[in-house]
Amino acid sequence: MNYKQKRILKHAFLIVFTLLMLYPVIWLFLGSVKANHEIFTPGNIFPSEWLWSNYKKGWNAIPGYTFGNFFINSFKISILIVIGSVFSTTLAAYAFARLEFPLKNFLFTVLMATLMLPQQVLLVPRYVLYSRLGWVNSYKALTVPAFAAQFSGAFFIYLLVQFIRGIPRELDEAAVVDGCSQFRIFWNIIMPNCKPAIFSVALFAFMWSWDDFLNQLLYINDVGKYTVSLGLRLFLDNAAAVSWGSLFAMSILSLVPVVTIFFLAQNFFVEGIATTGVKG
């Protein structure tokens, strides 16, 4: 088998495999252009009539607001959380990966332990705490903790620590000899060298805050401040009829920003390291 044949084989495999993996998403998409009575009944997977109007109906379904409002709100929250997470977790990760200080092992265990307690039992105490701070019905309860590396912060710190450990120590030791401060080392050597990891942190922070539901529900009362994931739930009663087509249509739309960001930014993070070329 020559090189070209191999490449074609690899491509064919990827195409079939991707289609298979995407079947549920395709099902969701087809559901978004179906009438309600065609979605769950057995029969053809394709709609008998393509109801693109589901998108328009879904967009305007919530009285007084459009999904445009919810998208803007989601962006506000997610961008703040990305900035906060990158700021706070890179700093902490540098300390854990490179610096020596008392109680280091203990604090690292604490860091990991915060990932291990199920969030369900923390819901109510945390709500009481934030409501005493007067943060209910604002974005503070959702965004300020990100600046202090909470929520998924521990995950990000640990991710960055693993990456920083992979960066050769000779680089920063050389800088120490040159008389650089720790902050300079952090900023000029470590940060550029863990770009892919920082990108991953930013991407995950964006994506998870975009998808988050329960925290947003707890801390936002005013529908004008609702996010996309809260907006999607506004279709869902526990008894009355549900416009599945519109719900699926908005679910598909809610994927667009994250997929676009991933599509555009992946080159930056995957190729980023090759161009800095520190390690080659």
């Binding site: 700093l91 902490a92 903790p145 600046f147 202090a148």
Partner: peptide, 14 residues
């Protein structure tokens, strides 16, 4: 102290 300064945001959060 420098190390704790780097850790400060996270420590405050905890």
């Amino acid at each position: 102290l420098t190390a704790y300064l780097f850790l400060a945001p996270w420590l405050i959060g905890i």
